[in-house]
Design a protein around this nucleic acid. Structure first.
Lengths: 148, 148
DNA sequence: TAATATTGTTATGCATAATAACATAAATCA
DNA sequence: TGATTTATGTTATTATGCATAACAATATTA
């Protein structure tokens, strides 16, 4: 059981980001499993509840995924009757996405679960420390190519 | 161009982690492309150079991936003659992984490139701020289920 | 009106990641 | 010792995430 040296990779911020995100992600996946939601379907549901009426194009932009990939996500949410696709009269190309009552209900349930998942996982870390980290993460996020 | 509200998701640390990692990841992918390396093949190469003689089992553990997924990565590095697989006399089940001279050379080249990629991307952020963030990320990483 | 752009969609491919099942070899134990 | 269990590497398979090309329908613009 010799120790492995990953000091070289540890010099990279991205390596730390990936490893810590993996920890949160795997716990989140387990948290969402009972609701039969994946991370992307969950994110989409939350954004549709919080922004009723938005279309798929805008949603794919905020979710940072390509439009084709969003189609299957929306298909799944619609099949499960968590959201509806409604033709927009003023622009008949696009669909307005709205949550159903079931969608709202699932939103509330999962919000509780996910909030508790993070609270439990991050319980050993001071809130101010997390806030500081989030501030730094926002800086990185805004360093997107083309913006920098 | 109405603004989308993602305040609910912004309450989650994991959301910030994912978004900022995506920024670094997409730039890293472009950085590695000229060397015909993906993130995983790159990580494996670095770890083999820094830990010559380790076997696939240990490598998959440190890389946090399943052994079957490592096989194809090692296959690729071996085919490109960046590493070698050598039978271990004392344990004939396992292979000792060693970098070739070409592996060493590519390691040095890519280390420079990746270092510059991060330096450029994170140039607007104070080093102390990044160090603080890394400290917090390490705390999250150690919050792994079973350890907590 | 003609050319261009946008929205949603299908098809496709690559990369990442997980599991089951297996052969070989080592370790354990009884 | 021999029988059982464990570890290592492998193949096959599947699910998921993410990107691009090509397209029909509709809007926009020049």
């Amino acid at each position: 059981m010799t120790k492995i040296n990953d000091e070289t990779l540890r010099t990279f911020v991205g390596y730390h980001l990936k490893r810590s995100f993996n920890v949160i992600q795997s716990d989140l996946i387990e948290t969402l499993r009972p609701f039969d939601l994946r991370m992307l379907t969950y994110s989409a549901l939350v954004l549709i509840v919080d922004n009723p009426g938005l279309n798929q194009s805008r949603l794919s932009q905020i979710m940072d995924i390509e439009r084709p990939n969003l189609v299957v996500i929306i298909d799944e949410l619609e099949e499960r009757e968590l959201i509806t696709r409604e033709r927009v009269p003023t622009d008949r190309r696009s669909y307005a996405l709205h949550p159903t009552e079931a969608g709202h209900a699932l939103y509330r349930e999962t919000l509780d679960a996910v909030t508790q998942h993070e609270a439990k996982l991050l319980s050993g870390i001071a809130p101010e420390q997390l806030e500081q980290m989030i501030a730094t993460l926002k800086l990185i996020e805004s360093a997107k190519k083309g913006q920098a």
